[in-house]
């Protein structure tokens, strides 16, 4: 698939001219994509690499200082877009913020029931200690808990009238489970 006519807010692809981005550009614009809750990871990857080959400072060593500085800046913006959009959690949080910038902050307090549960899970990981098979079973459970919330948030955000508060809570809870999951793996 060709990326030659890719439209990015960071670089004019056909000519390779690096451009200063406008304030209204979204992370999707940087990668030449339409905003959406569900994304095609292979497409993001392809666009990212095509744009990196034009923007990365390694390929601008002979350019003027101004162009080099712009290349560093735009590479940073491209990397931000790529990292955010490819990660389900970050992408959904970003899309939520586009709809309601305060939603995440407003729903930071999670229900006492959920917090109690998550503490129990943390303790379960703690007491599993060096039992690798037990840790693997736990990891599988928590992976499921994360996935369940991510797909619910994703489905909600695909609709134009999403309940932003509910989405925010789902995303906060997914973060908690991700943290517990990481503990499982590094123990």
């Amino acid at each position: 698939m060709s990326v030659d006519n890719l439209r990015s807010s960071l670089v004019d692809v056909p000519s390779g001219t690096i451009t200063a981005e406008s304030d209204t550009a979204t992370l999707f614009d940087r990668l030449g994509l339409e905003p959406s809750a569900v994304v095609d990871a292979a497409l993001i990857e392809r666009h990212y690499l095509a744009l990196s080959r034009q923007l990365h400072p390694d390929f601008q060593a002979a350019a003027t200082d101004d162009v080099q500085q712009l290349a560093v800046r735009n590479s940073a913006l491209l990397n931000e877009a790529y990292t955010t959009l490819l990660d389900d959690q970050k992408r959904l949080e970003y899309l939520l913020a586009l709809r309601d910038a305060e939603a995440l902050e407003r729903n930071k307090k999670l229900s006492p029931v959920f917090l109690m549960e998550s503490m129990e899970h943390s303790e379960a990981v703690e007491s599993a200690a060096d039992d690798t098979s037990k840790l693997a079973t736990l990891a599988k459970t928590y992976k499921g808990e994360v996935a369940e919330r991510i797909s619910a948030a994703q489905a909600a955000l695909a609709e134009s009238d999403a309940d932003v508060d509910r989405v925010a809570t789902l995303l906060h809870e997914a973060r908690v489970y991700r943290r517990i999951l990481r503990d499982c793996k590094t123990r």
Binding site: R73, A76, N79, E80, Y82, T83
Partner: peptide, 8 residues
Amino acid sequence: NQTVPCSV
């Protein structure tokens, strides 16, 4: 573990 260049 952020890819460089990066900016915040």
